[in-house]
Amino acid sequence: MRRGAELVMSGDAEVFGIALLSLRVALVATIIACLFGIPIGFVVGTTRFWGRRAAITVLNTMLAFPTVVVGVVVWGLLARSGPFGGMGLLYTWWAIVIAEVVLAVPIAAALTAAAVQTIDPRVRRTALTLGAGPWRVHWAVAQEARYALTAAVVVAFGRVLAEVGAAMIVGGNIRYHTRTLTTAVALATSQGDFALAIALGLVLIALALTVNVLLQMLQLRGDAQRA
């Protein structure tokens, strides 16, 4: 435990690099996942179309996808013999990002759909009566749902940061390249280095806390600006 704490405190270059990679993967994957997931959730949550119920069921099922299965599927797609093998992405940090995006899109979409479904239908009507165009109407709904939408981003980020199965499979846990905090914890544990595992775990929690605090501050500032 002490050795682990020392490692962290001394600013060990390797630990720092691992933490940085974890953060980078999580941020990039969360941003991409939200760019796709939030609009999908919006459409599913606010428009009536044929097959909408089925779409909601599919989204909710995707929430429960085992991460190793997603890892294996993405591995199959990116492997040299797979359809995207030519891109040479397997065992790079981008491969981890791709797998995490697949895992996080359903979270962002399902939580967004749930959030906008509960918004008072008068929000849409009111924006329309005040002369809003279609995009502004969506924006008004998003603003009313802002707390729930922030929660969707936070949950997606949490899932991506804490995920280990898919990261291990498609990243390969290669030292200095694709070793993230979670895969490093798994490795340290399997090697019996419990102290290091705990220390890395603490770094992971600290990262999650920092990002969530920043998001919350961003939201508070947004509220103040709207006022």
């Binding site: 008068r122 929000v123 009111t126 009566t129 002369g131 008004a140 603003q143 009313e144 709207r226 006022a227």
Partner: peptide, 16 residues
């Protein structure tokens, strides 16, 4: 423009 019977105000300040 229309003011509905039970109007809705956006969840922000009156000024906004």
């Amino acid at each position: 423009t229309l003011v509905e019977q039970q109007p809705l105000l956006f969840d922000t300040t009156v000024k906004a």
